[in-house]
Design a protein around this nucleic acid. Sequence first.
DNA 1: ATGGCCTGCAACGCAGGA
Length: 254
Amino acid sequence: MKIATWNVNSLRVRLEQVLDWSAAGQPDLLALQETKVTDDKFPVEALESAGWTLQYAGQPAYNGVAVLAREQLERLADALPGFEDDARRLLAVRSGEIVLVNIYVPNGQSVGSEKYDYKLAWLETLVSYLQALRKEYSQIVVVGDYNIAPEDRDVNDPVAWEGKVLVSEPERAAFRQMLALGFEDGFRRFEQPEESYSWWDYRQGGFRRNRGLRIDHVLLTPELAGRCRAVTIDREPRGWERPSDHAPVVAEFD
DNA sequence: ATGGCCTGCAACGCAGGA
């Protein structure tokens, strides 16, 4: 079984890439972020024709999350439960025994800004939600664009990034709170290439120079982590023409 | 030193991203 996550930065722009990439890699569950499409314009036909079962939660212009699956999906939540607004940044589904939480954490803009406070509040509510889910389910995978580089080794130039948004200590503390609930960073369960990143700035040849951050993650409860055989970042689509600025992350299970 | 790219929206520039 494979579970994948990919911030596509507009599903309509990246639809052919999603179809090509998923046809080649055959994930069983594929979580997408930043679909940037309202539900009435979601490309249902193209994806269903490719054999996918769909769940999606979109809004105009920004955010938007979706889950593509081979099997039937039950929707558990289409926004972060208990949060002040219903921005389409979370989609929780159940597929058999597995609960998949697909998240697009707010970017935060800059440390100290209003958006940064919003990000920290969103993360605090997320931790509460995951804690509640943990009491009800055992096999939970939380995937998506966390907009947090958990450690300095997840940052191409830690000195330049020190204290900045995506790297700041309060954000990293929020990430560690999820680990403290019992979730494991799937990627770090395995030996990985040095300087592994999942996002590269479009500007300044960021990808070519590997000036990136690892901000897309797969967190696993121990019950699922024990079955996990690999977590990899697939850099290939980032090198395609007109790419998303994020690479997909793939987790493989027995 | 600065910003350098991309997307959607709506309108010909902006907000937002990371």
